[in-house]
Simulated assay, not measured.
Amino acid sequence: MPRSSAAVRRAKKATASDLAVSVPPARMICDKNFSLSVKTTTDIHGDEQTHIWHIFEESMHALYRASSFGWNPQKKKTEMFHPLSRFLIAREITDPTHTGSHIIAYAIFRFEREERQDVLYCYELQVSTRARRFGLGKLLVHILSDIGVQWGMTRVMLTALKANHAALSFYKSTGFTIDESSPDFSKDSEGETRDECDYSILSRCLP
């Protein structure tokens, strides 16, 4: 386990209110209004956990079943709802009171020490199928970067399955590249990238 730094230890203690400084409370995209919030695992209620899980399952079930990770709901839920997880949540505003507004997109992240660098590690970034093509994914990436900068992180990192071509294309368009720690970063004697693993570790440097 990499030794934590003072910046990571400080960031891990941040409350939802502390993190929300970098998060706009609302944003209009394509004539639709969305509310944005940050929560810790203890702030997430049962119905919210259910919605978060359903969006993940909707997008990733088939990909995980075909991957080296396999489909293990209990293990994945333990990772997603870890005590140190933080949730950046988007909801569509359908009425002034926000009553009945379900989660339609989210990012799950933690502050970690990786390869001697302080990073914001994005464990999940998911957008419900009915809310895609509005730019919510890019908005969440930009907000994650702002949070990372606020708390002194040097980059945003994540793991993506190679079979998830849409996700890889999206992350490339938002400035992510293959990180040096990724199994497929190094090249063999003939200059070809190694392809044994079915996932890549990507990163985006922060200013």
Rank of each mutant, 00 (worst) to 15 (best):
R9D: 09
R9C: 07
A14Q: 07
S17W: 02
L19S: 00
S22Q: 01
P25N: 00
A26E: 06
C30S: 13
K32Y: 04
F34K: 03
K39Q: 03
K39G: 01
K39S: 01
D43H: 02
H45K: 11
G46A: 01
G46F: 00
H51R: 07
H54I: 04
S59K: 06
H61S: 02
S68K: 08
F69D: 05
G70Q: 11
N72H: 15
P73S: 03
K75C: 09
S85D: 01
R86Q: 13
E92N: 03
D95T: 04
I103R: 02
I104C: 07
A105Q: 06
R110W: 12
E112H: 13
R116E: 13
E124V: 08
E124T: 05
V127C: 11
S128H: 07
R133Q: 15
R133M: 15
G137W: 11
H142Y: 15
I143F: 01
L144V: 02
D146L: 14
D146F: 11
D146N: 15
G148F: 11
G152W: 06
G152L: 09
V156T: 10
M157L: 07
A166C: 05
T174L: 01
D184S: 14
K187Q: 06
D188L: 09
E190R: 03
E190V: 05
R194F: 12
C197N: 11
C197Y: 14
R204H: 14
